[in-house]
């Protein structure tokens, strides 16, 4: 499973629309979640609407929180998106096979079996999360909270049974010709995270759309074909799921 988690505090102002970029990511099987961080004042109606729309287009969820809630919000979203992706796949399968609209339409004893498989997948499936951090000038005071949230997420992912890794980008990139810059390549453990934003020079522009697209490219280049991966994630012997026999399709 692949996710991009965008942490920002305002509107994009350069390049492609972040909404279409997120839709493109989702079309390639990458869910996009968005956290808006505001400590004083509000994010503005425009910013709030953009955040909401990016998440909708990206098949993810969005939240606007203060930097104190950042850690737990980031973790909750990541986890819920994994659970949501699995749920969606299972519901789709139930629909195809039995014309049921969701797991909830199964009688409780069958539901128990299916949910057991879903929980197992949630813990064991492979997970890759790209954290895409808005490093425009206004984000500067929030970057230490962002860094803490990233470490905390890495610590939680490290405990999963399934292979999990995070990578971190910030945008805009340092040299102007790339929308975002890599701070940390795929890492599996929290201890492997370097000091992330110590040397960052925050700039004015916010190329959110181009940055999302670059993160998608990065995932494609480093993780191979994304869509076919479901075949590997799902266990083949699924006898314990009752009647659910064929492969889940995303």
């Amino acid at each position: 499973m692949k996710q991009i988690l965008l942490i920002t505090d305002g509107c994009s102002n350069v390049g492609e629309s972040p909404v279409t970029a997120a839709a493109q990511a989702w079309a390639e099987g990458i869910a996009v979640n968005v956290v808006g961080v505001v400590d004083e004042g509000s994010i503005g109606e425009l910013g709030a609407r953009e955040i909401d729309e990016i998440a909708r287009a990206g098949g993810g969820m969005s939240r606007i929180v203060g930097s104190r809630q950042l850690s737990r919000t980031v973790q909750m979203m990541t986890r819920m998106t994994v659970a949501g992706t699995i749920r969606q796949a299972v519901n789709h399968e139930l629909q195809q096979l039995f014309g049921l609209d969701s797991v909830g339409a199964l009688p409780p004893d069958k539901r128990a079996e299916v949910v057991r498989v879903m929980d197992e997948l949630e813990e064991t499936s492979e997970l890759r999360v790209v954290l895409l951090i808005d490093a425009s000038a206004s984000m500067k005071p929030k970057l230490s909270a962002v860094e803490e949230a990233i470490r905390d997420l890495a610590l939680s992912l490290e405990a999963r049974t399934g292979s999990s890794a995070v990578a971190v980008f910030h945008y805009p990139g340092e040299y102007g010709h790339l929308p975002c810059a890599l701070d940390c390549d795929w890492t599996r453990d929290a201890a492997g995270l370097p000091a992330l934003f110590a040397r960052i020079r925050t700039k004015g522009t916010t190329p959110t759309g181009p940055a999302i697209l670059q993160a998608v490219d990065f995932i494609r280049q480093t993780c191979g074909k994304i869509k076919e991966e479901w075949d590997d994630i799902l266990p083949s012997g699924r006898g314990d799921a009752g009647e659910v026999r064929s492969d889940y399709v995303v």
Partner: peptide
Amino acid sequence: AAELQGEANVLA
């Protein structure tokens, strides 16, 4: 439903 069922599974 799936979430509650997960909790019920643990209890069971």
